[in-house]
Amino acid sequence: MEVRTIKVFTTVDNINLHTQVVDMSMTYGQQFGPTYLDGADVTKIKPHNSHEGKTFYVLPNDDTLRVEAFEYYHTTDPSFLGRYMSALNHTKKWKYPQVNGLTSIKWADNNCYLATALLTLQQIELKFNPPALQDAYYRARAGEAANFCALILAYCNKTVGELGDVRETMSYLFQHANLDSCKRVLNVVCKTCGQQQTTLKGVEAVMYMGTLSYEQFKKGVQIPCTCGKQATKYLVQQESPFVMMSAPPAQYELKHGTFTCASEYTGNYQCGHYKHITSKETLYCIDGALLTKSSEYKGPITDVFYKENSYTTTIK
């Protein structure tokens, strides 16, 4: 009895394709271990004539594949690729409408935090270190965002349907971005203890939790000093293409032309909904596939993004 075979390709990165001759009487799992086709788990399936010449994702289970996976995804987590594939199996079914010149995501599976993050990423200057993220990001900007969303979920250790947080998501993504040249110098002034300067680099240099107003941050924000008295913390120097200011959701007025974009969060910790506000020729609110415009805006804002380049204080 002759062994019926077909020729397929296996890959971990969709760049390096490895030619395989597979036995049609055995499952993919018996031949390769966990195997995925377009995100779908085909591990328990036997090869079919229609699979001839198709590319299958496999887990990096030998040295060659491990090197290829690390170079593309910059992670050695053995569960990463499987999590990416199972997320992709959902995100490829989502709709990605162009809204006001940006790629958004039609609401499904509690994905409003991903839509808000995706919209924000198209408006701030950011370059990702893992080629996987950078490639998928370019495709997302062009309207094909399924891979990018699935990668975000995998890097953030999230599953489809789980509630997510924009600030946490951005923080994970910033860790995989090139923020080497970003720098922030802060000064804390206390009447009792004097003053202390701190220099922050990388992710810490672009994120701040405690106030939404970048102007206020430049002037000074009140913080408790270690001595128990009130101290003032203010920005001395900022070198970065953008800054992200966050605070627990509270009524906040966004003035046209003073910011790049913002995240609105309605609801409580267990259950809520994100919308995205962007400042173009007027203010726009993007909620999944829905767009509304207004000249002014007041609502429960939790993150505001500002364009920056270089700032030095005039406070002496």
Results as ranks from 00 to 15, higher is better:
Gly194Asp: 03
Gln30Asp: 12
Met209Asp: 09
Tyr252Trp: 14
Gln20Leu: 08
Met26Ala: 15
Asn110Met: 01
Phe9His: 13
Gly29Asn: 06
Ala142Pro: 04
Lys229Trp: 09
Asn100Lys: 14
Met245Ser: 01
Tyr274Lys: 02
Thr313Asp: 15
Glu71Pro: 02
Pro97Val: 12
Thr10Leu: 15
Ala146Tyr: 07
Glu281Cys: 02
Ile105Thr: 04
Glu52Lys: 14
Tyr113Val: 02
Leu17Arg: 11
Tyr234Thr: 09
Thr91Ser: 04
Lys218Cys: 07
Leu88Ser: 04
Gln216Cys: 09
Thr76Leu: 14
Asn14Ile: 07
Leu151Met: 07
Ala262Tyr: 01
His18Gly: 06
Ala108Glu: 07
Pro60Arg: 05
Cys285Asn: 07
Asn309His: 15
Tyr84Gln: 02
Leu179Gln: 03
Val221Phe: 11
Leu235Val: 10
Leu163Glu: 13
Lys229Ser: 15
Thr75His: 06
Tyr208Cys: 09
Thr103Ile: 10
Leu186Asn: 04
Pro224Trp: 12
His256Gly: 12
Val22Thr: 09
Gln175Glu: 08
Glu215Gln: 08
Thr278Ser: 12
Ala69Leu: 12
Tyr208Asn: 07
Thr159Ile: 08
Leu235Thr: 02
Arg83Ser: 07
Phe305Gly: 00
Tyr311Gly: 06
Gly101Pro: 04
Ile286His: 01
Phe305His: 00
Lys191Ile: 10
Met244His: 04
Leu290Val: 15
Ala289Gly: 11
Tyr274Ala: 07
Val21Trp: 12
Pro224Thr: 15
Ala69Gln: 11
Lys229Thr: 11
Thr192Gly: 12
Val42Phe: 14
Thr278Gln: 09
Ser294Met: 15
Ala262Asp: 04
Val203Arg: 13
Ile45Gly: 13
Asn268Cys: 11
His273Arg: 03
Val189Met: 09
Leu65Thr: 14
Asp180Pro: 00
Leu102Glu: 07
His51Ser: 05
Arg167Val: 03
Gln98His: 08
Gln134Lys: 11
Tyr297His: 07
Gln222Pro: 14
Leu235Ala: 01
Trp94Asp: 07
Thr5Met: 13
Asp41Trp: 05
Leu121Gly: 04
Phe242Asp: 00
Asp135Pro: 04
Gly220Pro: 12
Tyr28Met: 06
His276Ile: 06
His90Pro: 04
Gln251His: 15
Pro224Met: 15
Thr5Phe: 11
Phe148Thr: 05
Asn178Arg: 09
Lys183Ile: 11
Pro60Ile: 07
Tyr28Pro: 06
Gln30Lys: 12
Phe32Thr: 13
Thr313Pro: 08
Phe128Ile: 04
Leu254Gln: 01
Ala87Ile: 07
Gly272Lys: 00
Ala136Thr: 08
Val203Tyr: 15
Leu163Ile: 02
Leu254His: 00
Tyr72Leu: 08
Tyr214Gln: 05
Lys54Ala: 14
Val221Tyr: 08
Cys156Phe: 02
Gln237Leu: 13
Gln230Asn: 12
Ala108Pro: 00
Leu186Met: 14
Leu151Gly: 02
Tyr214Arg: 03
Tyr252Ala: 09
Glu71Val: 05
His256Met: 13
Val236Cys: 08
Glu264Gln: 06
Ile152Ser: 03
Arg66His: 10
Cys190Pro: 03
Ser246Tyr: 07
Thr198Ala: 10
Ala154Cys: 07
Gln175His: 11
Thr226Pro: 14
Tyr208Lys: 01
Cys285Thr: 11
Gln122Ile: 05
Arg139Cys: 12
Thr226Tyr: 11
Glu68Arg: 07
Asn129Val: 08
Lys158Met: 03
Gln195Ala: 13
Ser263Leu: 06
His273Gly: 01
Leu121His: 01
Asn89Met: 08
Glu296Phe: 14
Val42Met: 13
Pro248Trp: 12
Asn147Gln: 14
Trp107Asn: 04
Tyr113Trp: 08
Leu290Cys: 15
Arg141Val: 11
Gln251Thr: 12
Gln123Asn: 07
Ile105Pro: 01
Met170Gln: 02
Ser295Asp: 13
His90Ala: 12
Glu239Gly: 02
Gly143Cys: 03
Gly299Glu: 02
Pro47Cys: 06
Met209Cys: 15
Phe259Ala: 01
Arg139Ala: 13
Thr27Met: 12
Ile223Ala: 13
Thr43Asp: 09
Ser279Glu: 02
Asn61Cys: 15
Thr55Arg: 11
Ser295Lys: 15
His273Glu: 00
Leu102Thr: 06
Ser263Cys: 12
Phe9Met: 13
Val304Ala: 01
Lys183Pro: 01
Val67Pro: 07
Leu186Ser: 09
Ser213Tyr: 02
Lys218His: 04
Tyr297Leu: 02
Pro97Glu: 10
Tyr36Thr: 06
Ser213Cys: 08
Phe242Met: 02
Ser50Gln: 13
Cys261Gln: 01
Asn61Gly: 13
Ala132Cys: 06
Arg184Glu: 03
Val189Asn: 13
Leu126Asn: 06
Glu281His: 03
Lys127Leu: 07
Glu162Arg: 01
Val67Ala: 12
Cys261Phe: 01
Tyr284Phe: 11
Ile105Glu: 02
Thr10Cys: 12
Glu239Val: 13
Gly33Glu: 04
Asn49Pro: 13
Cys182Gly: 09
Gln222Thr: 11
Pro34Tyr: 10
Tyr73Gly: 04
Gln30Asn: 07
Met245Thr: 01
Ala117Phe: 02
Ala115Ile: 06
Tyr155His: 02
Met207Leu: 07
Glu253His: 10
Leu59Ser: 12
Ala146His: 08
Val189Gln: 08
Lys280Leu: 13
Gly29Met: 10
Cys225Ile: 02
Glu144Gly: 07
Asp165Thr: 01
Lys7Asn: 11
Thr232Glu: 06
Gln237Trp: 08
Phe305Trp: 08
Trp94Cys: 04
Cys112Gln: 06
Ala136Met: 08
Glu239Leu: 09
Lys7Asp: 13
Lys233Met: 15
Ser246Cys: 08
Tyr96Gln: 02
Gln270Val: 09
Val8Ile: 13
Met170Ala: 00
Leu291Met: 11
Lys293Tyr: 07
Ala177Val: 08
Ser104Leu: 07
Val58Gly: 06
Lys54Arg: 13
Ser86Gly: 12
Thr313Asn: 15
Met244Trp: 03
Thr55Asn: 09
Gln196Gly: 07
Thr292His: 13
Lys229Asp: 15
Thr35Trp: 04
Gly210Cys: 02
His51Tyr: 05
Thr103Trp: 10
Leu254Trp: 06
Val221Met: 09
Thr226Cys: 11
Leu126Lys: 03
Glu68Pro: 06
Thr169Asp: 03
Val67Ser: 14
Gly53Glu: 13
Val8Cys: 11
Lys44Tyr: 12
Ala115Asn: 06
Tyr155Asn: 00
Gly299Arg: 06
Asp165Val: 02
Lys158Asn: 03
Gln196Phe: 13
Ile301Tyr: 00
Gly210Tyr: 02
Val236Met: 11
Leu254Pro: 01
Ala69Val: 08
Gly53Asp: 11
Val58His: 05
Cys227Pro: 01
Gly194Phe: 06
Gln123Phe: 03
Val12Glu: 07
Leu186His: 09
Lys46Pro: 11
Lys7Ser: 12
Leu283Ile: 15
Lys280Met: 15
Arg167His: 09
Thr43Met: 09
Thr199Met: 09
Asn187Ser: 12
Thr103Glu: 02
Ile277Ala: 01
Gln216Val: 07
Tyr311Val: 08
Leu179Thr: 02
